[in-house]
C-alpha cells in the first residue's frame, strides 16, 4: 500500500497535511473512538525512504514540535523505509547519533503523556525502523508490509551459510527471515492490521498503556522462547 491509499483509509477527509515531500510527510487526522473524535499527529516516511541525517533530524524536530504545540497528542509513525542511508557523508556526521537523538525525543514525548504508535505500511528495514517505529508503545504493521534486517541472499553472503539452507530453515523458524508474521511471533508487533484500518487505529488509541512487554509476548507466541526468562534470571541473580 502507498501513502495515498493509506491516509484516506485511516483518516477519511480529516487528514490535514502540513508537510509533504517525496520521502517524508507530516500532518494530522481525526479518528473516531468510543470517546469521540481524537486528533492524531502523523510523522511519516514514504517511497521506501532512506533515513539519513537530514530525515532523522526532521523526524526528531517533528516530535519536539508536537510536544510544544500539541501537548499530550498521540503520535503515529507511518513507515515505509529501506533503512539507514548507506553513505559516507552521513556516517561522517554521526548518523547513529542523529538516530539515537530521535529515539530520545520519542522517549521524552512518551514521558510527557504522548501515546506513541507505529504502523509499517510499506517496508521497514533495520536502522530505518529502530529509532522510529520500534520506539512506539505499541507497534503494528499491515499484513502485506515487509519487515526485515536484510534479505536472505545478502544474509547468505555475509554469514557464508548456503542460501538453500537459509531458505529451507526459514520455512520453520521465524528467527531470521523477513516477514510481518515473524515479527508478530517475536512479540514485536502487537497486531497485524487488516480490513477497517480506522477502526484498528481507534482501538489502538484506547488500549491500556503498559511497559515494554515484547519479550513476554515473544515467549507467549513462541517466537522468542528464552528472552524473557534470561532477562529475568539476570534481574534476579543473587
Amino acid at each position: 500500500m502507498n501513502r495515498e491509499q493509506l491516509l484516506p483509509q485511516l483518516f477519511g477527509k480529516t487528514w490535514k497535511p502540513t508537510q509533504s515531500a517525496e520521502n517524508f510527510f507530516l500532518g494530522s487526522g481525526e479518528v473516531g473512538t468510543e470517546a469521540g473524535a481524537e486528533t492524531v499527529q502523523v510523522i511519516g516516511t514514504a517511497g521506501a525512504a532512506e533515513v539519513g541525517v537530514d530525515l532523522a533530524l526532521a523526524m526528531a524536530g517533528a516530535v519536539l514540535d508536537t510536544m510544544r504545540r500539541h501537548p499530550g497528542r498521540a503520535i503515529l509513525f507511518l513507515l515505509d523505509t529501506q533503512g539507514q542511508r548507506l553513505r559516507r557523508r552521513d556516517e561522517l556526521l554521526g548518523l547513529n547519533g542523529y538516530m539515537a537523538h530521535l529515539a530520545k525525543c520519542v522517549e521524552i514525548a512518551r514521558s510527557r503523556g504522548h501515546r506513541i504508535l507505529s504502523l509499517v505500511y510499506g517496508q521497514a528495514v533495520s536502522g530505518g525502523y529502530l529509532t522510529t517505529g520500534m520506539m512506539a508503545d505499541a507497534c503494528y504493521a499491515l499484513a502485506d508490509a515487509e519487515i526485515k534486517v536484510m534479505n536472505l541472499p545478502a544474509m547468505a553472503r555475509i554469514t557464508k551459510i548456503p542460501l538453500e539452507r537459509l531458505e529451507a530453515l526459514a520455512q520453520q523458524s521465524p528467527v531470521f527471515s523477513p516477514g510481518v508474521a515473524n515479527y508478530r511471533r517475536m512479540g514485536h508487533l502487537l497486531e497485524v492490521w487488516q480490513g477497517d484500518l480506522a477502526a484498528c487505529l481507534g482501538t489502538a488509541l484506547h488500549r491500556p498503556l503498559e511497559d515494554d512487554r515484547r519479550s513476554a509476548l515473544g515467549r507467549e507466541r513462541g517466537g522468542r522462547q528464552c528472552a524473557e526468562t534470561v532477562a529475568e534470571r539476570v534481574r534476579a541473580h543473587a
Partner: peptide, 26 residues
C-alpha cells in the same frame, strides 16, 4: 550490531535495549 543468524530476535532486542536505556536514564 544485530546478529544475522537470529536477525529478527536481534533487531527486536536492540530496540528493547534502546527503550530500556532511555527509560533508565529518565
Amino acid at each position: 550490531g544485530v546478529r544475522l543468524h537470529e536477525a529478527n530476535a536481534g533487531l527486536v532486542a536492540v530496540s528493547e535495549l534502546i527503550r530500556a536505556i532511555l527509560r533508565a536514564r529518565r
